[in-house]
Computed example of a mutant assay.
Amino acid sequence: MDEQLSMLFVMIELGGIFAPIAFILFHTLRQVIFIPPMIVCIAGGILFGVTLGTIYSIIGLTINCLFFYFVIKKMPKTHRKLSLLKKRWFGEYRNLTVGQVTVLRLIPFIHYHLLNFCLLEKRQGLKDYLKYATITNIPLAFFYTIFGQFISQFSPTMMIVILFALCILVYILREKITIIKWKEFFKEAHQKS
């Protein structure tokens, strides 16, 4: 992974005026080479500074979400896998709120596209999905662009405290009502007896 990031730095430095475009494209293509979005956001802060790095990261992450929106509909196996993963992690009838997705994006080991999938299930239309995907990407880009260098210097205890605080925030921002359709509720009751 260090080689890929070194390649990114060289490409950006040689790119000149095309460097922001190359960075945004790298953000979009990073999923193919399995680089977490946080690392690319940190690199954006180093290369372009806080303001431009955050802006370019938001654009790259939003294009990534747009790409996911169109591709997931053409991949039914992946759609089913993400649906099963969502049910396993969050429960069958639990829908994540936009606030929860925003906070969960800050936790490094939460699957980025699983959160995109949760947004897609909640907001079916392209306009709503893209709006909320952009909103949830802003704290991710901002946090990791600014604080990325400092996070690596945190002690393990501090990291556990931060993760615990984020988990509490996810719980507080949860959806307070669960709606189960009549047929689904009685289908489960019928299967149990």
Rank of each mutant, 00 (worst) to 15 (best):
K86P: 01
Y112W: 11
Y112A: 06
F48T: 01
A133Y: 12
L14G: 07
R94Y: 13
E184A: 04
R80Y: 10
F48K: 04
L25E: 00
A22V: 08
F186L: 08
I110P: 00
P156R: 04
Q149K: 12
I55F: 13
F34P: 03
G148S: 04
T28L: 15
I107D: 01
N64K: 06
I146R: 07
T78G: 06
L114H: 05
Y132S: 03
H79D: 12
K127L: 14
V32M: 10
T97D: 00
K176A: 04
R88T: 05
K181R: 11
I24S: 01
M159Q: 09
L115M: 09
V50K: 15
P76R: 13
E184T: 05
N137W: 10
V10R: 15
I42N: 00
Y144C: 01
V10C: 06
P139I: 11
T178I: 11
C167F: 15
N137K: 09
G49M: 10
I110D: 02
K183W: 03
F26I: 01
F68S: 04
E3Y: 03
A133D: 04
T136G: 01
M11Q: 14
I17R: 14
F34C: 04
L5Q: 07
L104H: 02
K122Q: 08
N137H: 09
H190V: 07
F143S: 08
L25F: 14
T136N: 02
F147Q: 04
I135P: 08
S83L: 15
R105L: 10
A133K: 14
V40L: 10
I39M: 09
A43N: 02
T97H: 00
A19F: 12
A22D: 01
Q124W: 09
M159K: 13
F185L: 15
D128N: 13
M158A: 13
Y171F: 13
H79W: 14
Q149W: 05
T178C: 01
V71F: 13
L8P: 00
Y171C: 03
M11S: 14
Q124N: 07
A19Y: 06
G60L: 04
Y129S: 05
V161Y: 10
F143M: 10
I21L: 15
F147I: 06
L85Y: 08
K187S: 08
Y56N: 05
T136V: 09
